[in-house]
Design a protein around this nucleic acid. Structure first.
Lengths: 186, 204
DNA sequence: GCTTTAAAAAGTAATCT
DNA sequence: AGATTACTTTATAAAGC
């Protein structure tokens, strides 16, 4: 009896912040080795950190988006590295810029195969999107917590849209309960 | 006041012209797909509902018209794949799929997932396969779906593999290429589904 | 709506050996 | 007939078209 909630792994955390200072991205692109800046393509400058591995989108307004981190701690660490890099370029950065987690993507394993056709009907076609011709996963929009769950035939799932670490655990408990209630979990 | 009248008439005329265009497009695509008149009527009703609920704003008329037709085919139990619908539409497949998901959600169509069995008669007849092959393919689909093999798989590929397997079992062999062409899937997909299905049937 | 970034799931597809 | 690479879906911020 392994608890599906124990199988939860955070795969990606998206967060936003800002240094409270306008930036000259053209100059920054020169001074930051490894920076990608294609203003014709996208207004943000892309900068990747190696440890922890993450990607930051830095904008002219001084606002920054960090993606790809495996934990909230990693987000803070990666952004801390970027803040230091900017200070090293004598760009003033606020002391402790507020970092807001915008989205957490997690994966988990329910431990049993799922009959997605039966699940689509059981969970209610109005809350479900299951179009195997377009994508193999069943998309389920849950109200509380407010997340979107992708369910696959293997029993593996993806939880996204949550902002708190607890959202994934609550979502897994809720979906397991609903699937069991329908008698559709092995 | 006069300008308002003119504007209303102009808007009404434009709306009327757009509706006529959408309905004629539905008619044209339905003919090209060879679906019965009843499906065109259902598609028209879906399109008018989308129009009255203001779902067309920000979307192309042709996209909504195509999505309505795709939905109507499913509702009437004679589905066409997105590939097939895209072939007769000037809208890219990706947009048809997105628009379908949107209007389906907003209009509460609540269409059940496509049953692979619904493709069997059409695919089998264009391959000139017998009734025997068709019922065998249907049986293969039922048995393998009951064993949970259908989850996440494309209905077209699933039907194509069952038809290929049935053609072998009934000594009316078609090549994977031939079946793949009518179903618009690759031979690789047929091979993969076929292997799972014959195992589910207890052969191999 | 789109553009870019990241990550997982599983199916399908294109390309190369 | 493999293997590899790449694309499909979900969420999310950012600035600008």
């Amino acid at each position: 009896m392994t608890n599906p909630a124990d199988s939860i792994e955070i795969q990606n955390v998206v967060a936003s912040t800002g240094i409270g200072q306008e930036l000259d991205l053209e100059a920054l692109a020169e001074d930051l080795p490894g920076a990608d800046f294609n203003p014709d393509n996208f207004p943000g400058l892309v900068y990747r950190t190696q440890e922890p591995k993450a990607a930051a989108l830095i904008f002219r307004s001084g606002k920054i988006v960090c993606t790809g981190a495996k934990s909230i701690d990693d987000v803070h660490e990666a952004l801390g590295i970027i803040f230091e890099k900017l200070r090293g370029l004598s760009i003033p950065v606020e002391d402790d810029p507020e970092i807001t987690v915008q989205n957490i993507v997690s994966s988990a394993d329910l431990g049993h195969n799922l009959n997605l056709n039966a699940l689509a009907i059981g969970l209610g076609l109005e809350d479900v999107e299951y179009e195997p011709e377009q994508f193999p996963g069943l998309v389920y929009r849950m109200d509380t917590p407010e997340v979107v769950i992708l369910l696959f035939g293997s029993g593996k799932i993806v939880i996204t849209g949550g902002k708190r670490t607890d959202d994934a655990e609550e979502a897994v408990e809720e979906i397991v309960e609903r699937i069991e209630g329908l008698g559709l979990l092995g | 006041r006069l300008r308002k009248w003119q504007e209303r008439i102009r808007t009404k005329d434009a709306g009327e012209r757009n509706l006529q265009f959408a309905l004629s497009e539905i008619d044209r695509m339905a003919s090209a797909l060879g679906v019965p008149r009843s499906v065109r009527e259902v598609a028209s009703v879906i399109y008018r509902r989308a129009l009255s609920e203001d779902l067309i704003r920000g979307r192309s008329i042709e996209g909504v018209a195509t999505a309505a037709l795709y939905a109507a085919c499913r509702q009437e139990g004679i589905p066409r794949s997105l590939d097939e619908v895209a072939e007769v539409s000037r809208v890219p497949q990706k947009e048809i799929g997105r628009t379908y998901r949107y209007i389906s959600q907003e209009l509460g169509l609540e269409l059940k997932p496509v049953d692979p069995k619904q493709f069997v008669p059409r695919f089998a007849s264009s391959l000139e396969l017998s009734e025997e092959v068709q019922s065998k393919a249907t049986e293969i689909i039922d048995v393998s779906a009951e064993q949970g093999l259908l989850s996440g798989k494309s209905p077209t590929g699933f039907a194509a593999a069952a038809i290929y397997a049935a053609s072998l079992l009934c000594n009316e062999k078609k090549t994977q290429r031939e079946v793949a062409d009518v179903a618009q899937v690759t031979e690789v997909t047929i091979r993969n589904r076929y292997q799972e299905q014959i195992e589910a049937m207890g052969f191999r």
